[in-house]
Structures are given as structure tokens and as C-alpha cells.
């Protein structure tokens, strides 16, 4: 239950921040480039799964409990629904994109053409991307962690 060899542990420790940053990039640029909350969340969760494979599930379960992951996932879902209800409260309806066109924080809305990427254009969509990304990271990693832990317990008892 000590995971794999020292080479694999070292290499995965070095690689993990790059995977993490790349996943966060995909989440943050979901409204500009291909990607979004789900895809970036899947990338980050696969990086966490790499750590899980390298270090073993018991070590990872000692570092982070799946209860905390469930809390994170619920937090992401709560933020998502909260943003949707903001549209109901201050806009016209549920899932109304109420921040778009607000030129103070969220810049000018592009008309219809091929433009360069402005980061702060899409109103509530990047915030929803972050919420869904958090939800997908925590959810997928909780699934992988719990399944790996439960199947490693059986091998210990044998």
C-alpha cells in the first residue's frame, strides 16, 4: 500500500502542478477557447488520479478525506444554483445572464465577428464555469478515490 516506486512518485509530483495549471487554464478560458468547466475539471481530476495511482489510495485518503471532497462538490453546485437564482432575482428569469452588457466590470459585448479574446466579456458564464469546474474536480476525484480505496482494502485483508 505504499504506492509505486520512487521514480514514479517523483515524476508524478513534478508533473502534477503543470496538469493542474493547464486544467485551471481550460476552466478559466471556457468562454473563449474550446473547453469549459467540465473539460478542465476532467483534466484536473485526472491529474489527481495520477497522484492517487502513484502514491497509493491509503496515503491519499490520509491526506484528503472524501467528506471534504463532498463538501467541495456541494459548494460548487451551490454556487452554480446561486448564480442561476441571481438571474431570477435581479434579471428576468432563471439562468438569465444578468451581468452581460454591464460595462463597469464586464466589458463590452462583441457584436458579431471574429474578435480577439477579451477575458471579461461573457457576464455570468465564467463564474458558472468555475463553479462547475470545482464541482467536476471534486466529484470525479471523490469517485476515483472511494473506488480505489475500497478495492485496496480487500487486498489488505487477503
Amino acid at each position: 500500500m505504499s504506492g509505486m516506486s520512487k521514480i514514479v512518485k517523483t515524476i508524478s509530483s513534478i508533473t502534477f502542478p503543470f496538469v493542474f495549471i493547464y486544467g485551471l487554464y481550460v476552466i478559466a478560458h471556457g468562454h473563449l477557447t474550446p473547453g469549459g468547466g467540465f473539460q478542465g475539471g476532467a483534466i484536473v481530476a485526472s491529474g489527481c488520479a495520477m497522484i492517487l495511482v502513484a502514491y497509493g489510495s491509503v496515503w491519499t485518503m490520509g491526506k484528503i478525506k472524501e467528506k471534504n471532497l463532498s463538501i467541495l462538490e456541494s459548494l460548487g453546485g451551490f454556487c452554480f444554483i446561486l448564480l442561476a437564482f441571481l438571474g431570477l432575482g435581479f434579471g428576468t428569469g432563471f439562468f438569465n445572464n444578468l451581468f452581460v452588457g454591464n460595462e463597469f466590470l464586464f466589458g463590452e459585448t462583441p457584436k458579431f465577428n471574429s474578435v480577439a479574446a477579451n477575458f471579461n466579456t461573457a457576464g455570468v458564464i465564467p463564474l458558472m464555469n468555475f463553479a462547475v469546474g470545482l464541482k467536476v474536480i471534486a466529484g470525479l476525484f471523490a469517485i476515483v478515490l472511494v473506488m480505489a480505496y475500497a478495492s485496496s482494502i480487500r487486498e489488505d485483508e487477503k
Binding site: 473563449l32 477557447t33 462583441p110 471574429s114
Partner: peptide, 10 residues
């Protein structure tokens, strides 16, 4: 092309 307007070739 893919439905993305960020510096799309048209």
C-alpha cells in the same frame, strides 16, 4: 469550422 469566434478564420 468549430463554433468559436475567437480569431476564427470565418
Amino acid at each position: 469550422i468549430a463554433p468559436i469566434y475567437t480569431s476564427s478564420p470565418g
